[in-house]
Amino acid sequence: MKILLIEDDDALQHTIKEALARSEIRVECASTYRAALSKINDYDYDCVLLDIMLPDGDGLSVLASLKRHKKAESVIIISAKDSIEDKVRGLELGADDYLAKPFHLAELIARVKSVVRRKQVGGHTSIDLGNLSLHPNERRVVVNDADLKLNRKEYDLLYYLVSNPNRLINKTALAESVWGDHIDQADSLDFIYSQMKNLRKKLKDAQAQAELKAVYGFGYKLIYNEIAEDSKL
């Protein structure tokens, strides 16, 4: 998977690049409107992460240019402006998603994977981790060819974790993935504990190869070691 990151802030650029690299996603960067346009003209990407406030131009023009040239890239807008009008305008111009700063990197990765997966025609639409496969279109989880019954929140949490395998996710990021950002985290953490406990038990009972692990009260990690599992076979 190859991604173009258009972001003028160096520190944020490096952070996002590093996070995507850890998820084995290749990233190229552009800091200006001009650089972004030339990259888009010269190469093809699976997804473009677009900051709409650029020093030398409006990021939305990059989006318009992409659509004008009928390029297939998915576009996720990352913006400091969390305003409905911007969001609506971006989506109307053909963006696939809109993420307001400051986002969780895990959230960004989940969204990137989601928009790229949606573009894949006729291919795999499920996310597979060993014997666990999650089907986002049907909101269904299958382990060892058997349906795993999850409630809505358990499913949301698992989806988030499956999008970020082998990464330690902070519990507040998990809480936000379920509740959105209008809930103060501290209030919702008790709920996260009990949901995660149930989810872990369900995965274990279904003998999923991916293992949900709590880390020191900090957060959770969905551990799945492909090579190790393969060597067992």
């Binding site: 520190a11 952070t15 590093e18 850890r22 400091a80 969390d82 700063k101 986002f103 330690l168 902070n170």
Partner: peptide, 20 residues
């Protein structure tokens, strides 16, 4: 408030990377 969003995003991202 707008100007704070990008630095906050950087801090949050770096913390996530550090924790991982």
């Amino acid at each position: 408030a707008h100007e704070l969003q990008t630095p906050l995003a950087v801090i949050r991202g770096k913390l996530e990377l550090l924790a991982d």
